[in-house]
Design a protein around this nucleic acid. Structure first.
Lengths: 214, 214
DNA sequence: TGTACATCAGTGAACGCGCGTTCACTGATGTAC
DNA sequence: TGTACATCAGTGAACGCGCGTTCACTGATGTAC
């Protein structure tokens, strides 16, 4: 995790800065990926948007701050690009997790999705906070509704399989998402040991409230 | 709201800076209050901790930045003082709101408390975000448990009056608080019209899930 | 009553810092003729 | 095959900015004698 791939080793293990090997002619776009990965790593390390700076990203990647401008118009464009990646990753994790459960167990699939959501947000507080936190505009809206959409679909599947919902499926999905969000957000702000277990347990509790049987 | 009290008018209506009248000999502590109020106002205007600076507070109050240091050791001490005030205010609002409902209606009292919590957080996104957001350490823990304690007490009262809880009282209180927090936090991040009505409705829905009857 | 001095409230200018961004550049690699 | 030139990847130094904090100060008000 602390090393770098062949295309851009930036720091020696002693902390001294090594000269970067520039990408070959015609492959300048590779740096774009490196910057994106470095930015993502930095956000993860910081755990919050505070202190997320272009100069910090440049240090992380091992390039001059000015080099970022060849690939991103400005700071906010870089952040948007990082978030887009993360949104996709979150949704993928939820879908993959759902797919590990047999289709004949719709409640299990719903639960798997919810747990994947929580696990992602516990493991990536920085990304999560920025995605669902203060900066949350047009670009943030669509992914949020995708999450709600997935949960609604999973709840509807439960209903079709005979489960009783205490709320209409979409309201139930929103309740689950907001409940999970509240737990996660507070846990980020107020770290406790076994946070993940607590969050997952709370989500299960919510599930039992929303679905008629425990 | 835009004017100042007699002790420290800072700006003329045209925006030009008026000379501050210094507080009388022996009453230097008055400026402490003015700074606290100015800081609170600034946080409310900003709606977030981003951009909350000592120089901004000084501008708001109409003093030199250096003058703050006569009353607060540094920036974080000022923020702590602001938050302490706000914690007290939030708890007071919840208790007052509860007191407006007859004691023979414990569900109504619980609901009033929850609504007060939501109304406070919708009306004071900046304060709320800082209180329940990133900076949330030892000082933040106690007030949080006071809120949960109040809700638990209100839920227990409902139980004693014959209501059926689907969860133990404290778990139910936590569920309600976290659900409210999730809604509020997302609404702050993602403004919608009629946000307050949405949040209150969602909280009522949670109440109906937690208490056995709608 | 006068006067020297202490205390008080508050200030102006400066410090060093890290930030986002710009700009003219360097040096390697490709292409046209 | 050579050579002039274009294109590319990336840099170093500088810009202006606002920040938190420090420090020596000003000028008004009180107090001791």
């Amino acid at each position: 995790m602390t090393g770098k791939d062949a295309s851009g080793a930036a720091k020696s293990s002693a902390g001294a800065t090594r000269r970067r090997v520039r990408n070959p002619w015609g492959h300048g776009e590779r740096l774009r990926t490196e910057i994106l990965e470095g930015a993502s790593r930095l956000l993860r390390e910081l755990g919050t948007e505070d202190g997320f700076t272009l100069r910090g990203v440049a240090r992380e990647v091992g390039i001059a701050p000015a080099s970022i401008y060849g690939h991103f118009r400005d700071k906010s464009e870089l952040i948007d690009a990082v978030l887009n990646n993360e949104y996709d990753r979150l949704i993928s994790l939820m879908l993959e997790s759902q797919a590990t459960v047999d289709a004949t167990d719709p409640l299990g699939r719903l639960r798997a999705q919810l747990h994947a959501f929580c696990r992602y947000s516990m493991a990536n507080p920085g990304h999560y906070r920025v995605m669902f936190g203060v900066r949350f505009d047009e670009r943030g809206r669509a992914p949020l509704w995708r999450v709600i959409g997935e949960l609604t679909a999973a709840l509807t599947a439960c209903e079709l399989a005979g489960a009783q919902l205490r709320l209409p499926a979409e309201r139930a999905a929103i309740t689950l998402l907001l409940g999970a969000h509240g737990t996660v957000a507070l846990t980020h702000a107020h770290p406790v040991k076994d946070a993940e277990a607590l969050v997952l347990h709370h989500v299960d509790e919510l599930l039992s409230l929303v679905l008629d049987s425990g």
